[in-house]
Design a protein around this nucleic acid. Structure first.
Lengths: 245, 245
DNA sequence: CGCATGATTTGATCTGCATCAAGGAAATTA
DNA sequence: TAATTTCCTTGATGCAGATCAAATCATGCG
C-alpha cells in the first residue's frame, strides 16, 4: 500500500536535512529541491522498486529501513545493502536499476523525478558534491561487506551485522551497553545479508544470547549486554569507525 | 622500484582519454588537469599505497593492473577490487585509505595532488560528474561481487572471474571464442579476490580445462574455448553487461 | 477462542570447500 | 647449471555451515 502525500513537509524541519543528499545545500538550492520533491510512503513488505523498472525517480529515505536485493536465475538471493534514514536510492544517469528495493519497515521517501534532479545536479555543485560523498561512503561500506562475505566466520558475520545495527541505529541516541535496539530484519533476511542460512543465523544469535553478549526482550527487540565482547567477536581491529556506519 | 617521470605525455594522445576521470573534459579543463598531472610507474609487486597512508594524491591507471586489498587483524585477506586502465584510485575528501593498493603488473599512473584536484572538481563540473559516474559504476560492480562472494559456488566464482577478465581485457579487441587472454593474478591472488583458497582455484581451473572450456598455453596465458559454456557456468542470467565490466 | 500461517528454534545428517601434506614445474639468482 | 624460491598441482582428511526435518512459538483472523 503506497501513497503519494499531497503535503510537502518543510525541508528546514526535516530529520535528515543535515545528512542526506541535500546536506550541503544553501537556502536557494534547498528551495529548488523543495520545488520538485514529493513524499511517498510504503508499508512494511512493499516493493519500492523492482529490478528492471524504469528509474523514473530518485529518493532519500526519511523514515524506516529498506533493503537492496539481488536475485540469481535459480532463486538464490543476496542482500547488497540496507538503507537507513538519509540514505539515497537510485542513480542519476541510469535508466533502470538491477536490483529490488524493498521496504522492510514502514518507509517514507523524499522523491525527486530523475530528470529534473539530473538537471539540478548539473547546475548546483553542492548536491553533486554531497552525492559523490554519499556514493563513496557506500562504496567503502560495500568493500567492508565484501570482507565479511568472503572471509568471516558465521559468528563474526553475526557480530559484525549486530555491530553495524548498533552504529546505524544510534546515530543520535545513547549508545553503549544497555541501549534498546530493534532487529529490522527477519532471520531469513539477515541470512541473506550476511551470506548464511536462516538456521545458522538463529543458532549464532542464540549462542551470543547464552554467552551474555546479547539480551533479547522479544524476537525483534534486544540490547547489547557486552559491547566489548561484541566488538571482539566481529574480528575487526581496533575501533576506527568502519565505513558501513 | 618507483619513479616519477619528468615528462608529461600529452592528454590528447592518452589511451584512457575517453574513459578516465577526464573523459568529459573540454580543452580548457583538460589543460588544467594537464598542468597538475604527474606520471608515476611501479614495478609488478610494488605497493602503490598502504593502508593508513596519508592520501596525498589521487590517480588514474594508465597502463597495467592494480589490486585493492583488505587485511584482517589475524592476517586473512580479501581483495576488494581490481583496477584496469582508466580506473581511478583514491577519493577526494578523505585523508587516508583503509586498504592496500598493489601493482600486480607493471603499472603507470597519471597522478594528481589531492588538494589541487579537489579544488578542480569543485569548479569544473565535468570532472565531478565523471567521477560520480565512475564511483557509481564501481559501486554496482562491488554489489555484483557481493553476490559472488555470498552465494556462488567455487565453480561459479571461477567462471565469473574469468568472464570478468574477458570483458575487461577486450574493451577494444576481438572478443569471442579464441581470443588470447592473460591471467594477471596468481592462484593465490585469484583466491583472495573470489573468497576461496588457492587449492580450490587450481582445482576448478583445471576442471574447466579438462571440460574444454578453457585452453591454457601457459600458466598465465589462455583462451576461451567455449564462451557459451563459460557464461552458463557463471550462474548469471542472460547477457546484460554486468556492472563489473 | 481456535485455527491458520509464517517465523523461529532445535536436532540430525550431509557436503563443498578448507586444511594439511607432499611433490613437481617455472622462474630467479648465483 | 645448479641452487633457491615461488608458484602450482594433486591427494587425503576434516569441519563449518548447508540441508533436511520437526517441533514450538507468535500473530492475525474468522
Amino acid at each position: 500500500m503506497r501513497f503519494t502525500a499531497k503535503i510537502r513537509p518543510k525541508c528546514s524541519e526535516c530529520p535528515i536535512r543535515h545528512r542526506a543528499v541535500c546536506a550541503r545545500c544553501d537556502d536557494g538550492e534547498l528551495a529548488m529541491l523543495e520545488g520538485i520533491k514529493v513524499y511517498r510512503s510504503f508499508a512494511a513488505g512493499d516493493p519500492i522498486l523492482r529490478r528492471g523498472d524504469p528509474l523514473t525517480y530518485v529518493a532519500s529515505v526519511v523514515h524506516g529501513v529498506a533493503t537492496l536485493n539481488k536475485t540469481m536465475e535459480d532463486g538464490r538471493t543476496q542482500m547488497v545493502g540496507m538503507l537507513f534514514p538519509s540514505d539515497f536510492i537510485g542513480r542519476p544517469g541510469r535508466v533502470e536499476i538491477d536490483f529490488d528495493v524493498v521496504a522492510v519497515t514502514d518507509v517514507t521517501l523524499c522523491c525527486f523525478q530523475r530528470r529534473p534532479f539530473e538537471r539540478l545536479i548539473a547546475t548546483t555543485p553542492h548536491i553533486a558534491q554531497r552525492l559523490l560523498e554519499i556514493s563513496l561512503d557506500e562504496l567503502d561500506a560495500a568493500r567492508d561487506w565484501m570482507v565479511l562475505l568472503g572471509r568471516k566466520t558465521a559468528r563474526e558475520k553475526i557480530a559484525t551485522f549486530v555491530h553495524m545495527l548498533v552504529r546505524r541505529q544510534s546515530v543520535v541516541g545513547s549508545l553503549g551497553d544497555g541501549a534498546p535496539l530493534i532487529l529490522p530484519l527477519t532471520r531469513d533476511e539477515i541470512a541473506s545479508y550476511i551470506g548464511l542460512t536462516l538456521e545458522t543465523v538463529s543458532r549464532q544469535l542464540n549462542a551470543m544470547k547464552k554467552e551474555g553478549i546479547l539480551r533479547f526482550t522479544d524476537r525483534r527487540r534486544f540490547e547489547i549486554a557486552d559491547l566489548t565482547a561484541l566488538h571482539i567477536a566481529t574480528g575487526d581491529d581496533e575501533e576506527g569507525a568502519p565505513a558501513y556506519c
